[in-house]
Design a protein around this nucleic acid. Structure first.
Lengths: 108, 108
DNA sequence: TTCTAATATCGCAATATTGCGATTACGCAA
DNA sequence: TTGCGTAATCGCAATATTGCGATATTAGAA
């Protein structure tokens, strides 16, 4: 029915899935790569750097903010986007632990 | 239009997005966690372990196979599922590199 | 106040995903 | 051959996502 049954999974599994969603679309990967490689935040050039309409970019930014992996600090008339380091580190730790948890398989 | 414009992003960005999709749903996270912690493959108990219908689990397994992160070796009448180690390591390397690429931000 | 620039939101259309009952396909056993 | 057990696929319904034009919002500039 298109309705993910979040309630039947653990909080951790749902959080992993949410963090993964941040990277599960190439446009969002591109946004995060742009933000990660900057010393300072981007205050509006994001739309220029991406081959997508302003409304679409804004939508992806909203999703990234919902997940918490970026911040959008208002500096009128612009908004200043940058990586939200604590959540970025959470993602690093989470995927690191998860992907390190593979035991040796003597299989098939 | 719901059509992700894969052609306007780099192959690498699209691959990252695909690998992330493997973890972008709690049911798939649960499946991968189950497979990762086993010494041997699972030959059918997967449906019993998950609170989802057989058809639904099969659908998620199909997606994981498409991405390449699991294998499904036929051992009739069962199928023997396990982590596909090369792709798992690819994910580890990919997310590791990506999440390590954050430069110090002196921001906002 | 009015205008301007930047971003967010709305509303829509198209496509994708999720979930599952029912059916199908496939080997093997009897 | 038939029947059984297992997994894949089909077909459908419901919800989610993607994309974008148009509009709204917002705060400063003029």
């Amino acid at each position: 029915m298109g309705l993910t049954k979040t309630e039947i999974f653990t909080d951790r599994q749902n959080r992993i899935a949410d963090l993964a969603k941040a990277f599960a679309h190439p446009a969002r990967v591109a946004i995060l790569q742009l933000l990660a490689k900057r010393q300072s935040c981007i205050c509006g050039d994001l739309v220029d750097e991406l081959p997508l309409a302003q409304a679409t970019v804004s939508q992806h930014l909203k999703e990234l903010k919902r997940i918490g992996i970026i911040r959008g600090d208002i500096d009128p008339p612009r908004v200043c986007y940058c990586i939200n380091e604590p959540v970025w580190q959470e993602a690093r730790q989470t995927f690191g632990a998860l992907l390190d948890s593979l035991v040796e398989t003597s299989c098939c």
